[in-house]
Each structure stands twice: as structure tokens, then as C-alpha cells.
């Protein structure tokens, strides 16, 4: 009996050590290592984008007024460039808190937003790289959201007029959904538009699935990077909160072939 007790307490001690000490220590180590590697990845990305311009931006001496004008000029240049495209594009003006849908330079829809979360990465741009990066529209490399972009319903043709009369499609106006979507630009930046008015639809199952899916992709990327002894990818993001109807209109209106212009 005593041997069995000792054996059990021995196994208990080993398990206790594994679950109470070893694994927690390992988790902390992984977190520290991951944060360190990600910090290096962030630095690398900052350096990559800062060296985007041929000139050395470090030696530029500018006043705040000039810096403002430079950003305005880059924004207008990018909008003009986007106007050459036939597809519907989007402009994000963080200076004036405006999001617009545009086609051929004509503003189709404009919304003023109250809340936005901007990654610190975007605040690090020097004038030279800024002009080089933001004077042209970004290409959309991925787009997805909690709602479908084209809500197509498949309907079989009725056999006769009696069946046709029975199968009249009614529009469902009672459907409550939470609108949240993202667009990835040039495989480098991420823009998210999230419904700001929660009373018009709470975060639902679809939204959780969408968010989990995005987190899964991030974790997957992390695991892949670890396996290949590479730094995990860092994608700076801008999240904008706008009313539900606007978020929906922007998502459905924005063309996959359209560009996105950003003014920081």
C-alpha cells in the first residue's frame, strides 16, 4: 500500500512539475521569444518601408506645414491615379476622419468616422518613403467579412405558372447581422471596417467564426514561420468604426479590382 502511495505521489510530483512548472515556463519562454522575434520583424518592416524611397529621408528638414502639404499632395496624386481605374475604389483620410467610395474621381459615398485604431507603424513614416508609398493607390490582395459580398440566392425555374405563383420570393428584412470586414493591401497592410452601432446587431456566431478564422490564419502563419526558422509576418492595421449600413455599403460597393488610397 505504501509503495503504491509512494508511486502515485511520485507520478503526481512528475505531473505537477510538468503542468505546474515546466509547461508554464515554456509558455512564458515562447511568449518572450515570439515577442522578441516579432519586434525584430516589426523593425525589419519599418526599415523596409523607410528605405522604400531612393533618397535618404533622414536628412530631410521639414516644418510641420510642409509635412502637411506633402501628405496632401501625395493623397491627391493617389486619388488621381485611382481615377484612371474603372473600378470602384476607397479612400481613407485619417486626417479628416473620412472614408469615401470613389469611381473615376467622383465621390459616391462619404462617411465621417468617430473612432479609429491606427497601428503605430503608420506614424513612423518619414517624408521620402511616405511620398513613395502613399502617392499611388494600394492594390487589394484580399478581402473578406462577416457578410457575403454578393448575396446571391439560387432559384430553380418553376415547371408551370401554378408552381411559379407558389414560389414567390420574399425579401427577408428581419435578418440581423454584425458587419465587420477587412481588406489587405499589397500583402502589407490591413484595413478593417467594423460596425460601430452595436444596438443594430450584436456580435454573432458568424462574426466569431470570422474573427477566429482570422486568428487561426495568424497562428498558422506563426507556426509555419517557426517551422521554417523565419520571422513571423507583421501586418500593420488600421481599424475604422462606422455605422452598420455604411460598413455594409462600403463592403459591397468596393470592387476587388479597385484601389485603396490612404492619407495619414
Amino acid at each position: 500500500m505504501t509503495d503504491v502511495k509512494n508511486k502515485k505521489s511520485g507520478i503526481g510530483r512528475v505531473l505537477g512539475f510538468i503542468f505546474m512548472k515546466f509547461i508554464p515556463a515554456l509558455i512564458i519562454l515562447v511568449l518572450i521569444a515570439y515577442t522578441t522575434i516579432l519586434t525584430l520583424s516589426v523593425r525589419e518592416k519599418v526599415n523596409h518601408w523607410q528605405s522604400a524611397s531612393g533618397e535618404n529621408g533622414d536628412h530631410t528638414t521639414l516644418s510641420q506645414d510642409e509635412w502637411q502639404l506633402i501628405r496632401d499632395k501625395a493623397f491627391l496624386n493617389a486619388r488621381l491615379s485611382m481615377a484612371a481605374n474603372d473600378s470602384i475604389g476607397m479612400t481613407i483620410n485619417l486626417q479628416d476622419s473620412l472614408v469615401q467610395l470613389e469611381v473615376k474621381g467622383v465621390v459616391l459615398k462619404q462617411i465621417h468616422f468617430e473612432e479609429a485604431e491606427v497601428s503605430r507603424f503608420f506614424k513612423a513614416f518619414k517624408p521620402g518613403p511616405y511620398v513613395k508609398t502613399f502617392s499611388k493607390p494600394f492594390k487589394i490582395t484580399d478581402i473578406g467579412g462577416t457578410i457575403v459580398k454578393e448575396p446571391i440566392t439560387i432559384k430553380k425555374a418553376p415547371k408551370d405558372s401554378i408552381e411559379a405563383a407558389k414560389n414567390i420570393t420574399k425579401v427577408d428584412t428581419t435578418k440581423v447581422e454584425f458587419v465587420e470586414w477587412h481588406v489587405e493591401l499589397n500583402h502589407a497592410f490591413l484595413i478593417s471596417l467594423v460596425q460601430s452601432d452595436h444596438e443594430l446587431g450584436k456580435v454573432d456566431k458568424t462574426t466569431w467564426q470570422y474573427r477566429l478564422n482570422r486568428h487561426y490564419n495568424t497562428l498558422n502563419g506563426f507556426v509555419k514561420a517557426v517551422k521554417q526558422y523565419q520571422k513571423p509576418a507583421y501586418i500593420p492595421a488600421i481599424t475604422i468604426f462606422i455605422p452598420k449600413n455604411e460598413a455594409k455599403s462600403f463592403y459591397r460597393g468596393l470592387s476587388r479590382k479597385g484601389g485603396v488610397v490612404i492619407r495619414l
Binding site: 511568449l31 515570439y34 515577442t35 516579432l38 519586434t39 520583424s41 516589426v42 523593425r43 519599418v46 523607410q50 529621408g57 533622414d58 536628412h59 530631410t60 528638414t61 521639414l62 516644418s63 510641420q64 509635412w67 497601428s119 503605430r120 507603424f121 506614424k123 513612423a124 518619414k126 517624408p127 507583421y234 500593420p236
Partner: peptide, 21 residues
């Protein structure tokens, strides 16, 4: 948490270039 912490090390504003009055 890790992405937020990593971003703290990014130099922001005009610290990376020279601003003149």
C-alpha cells in the same frame, strides 16, 4: 499582446527625421 508590445519599439512622429520650426 505580442504585436502591441512589438509596436512599442517603433520610433514615431518626426523623431526619425528632422523637423524644423
Amino acid at each position: 499582446v505580442a504585436p502591441k508590445v512589438s509596436e512599442l519599439f517603433i520610433p514615431v512622429g518626426s523623431s526619425g527625421w528632422h523637423a524644423s520650426a
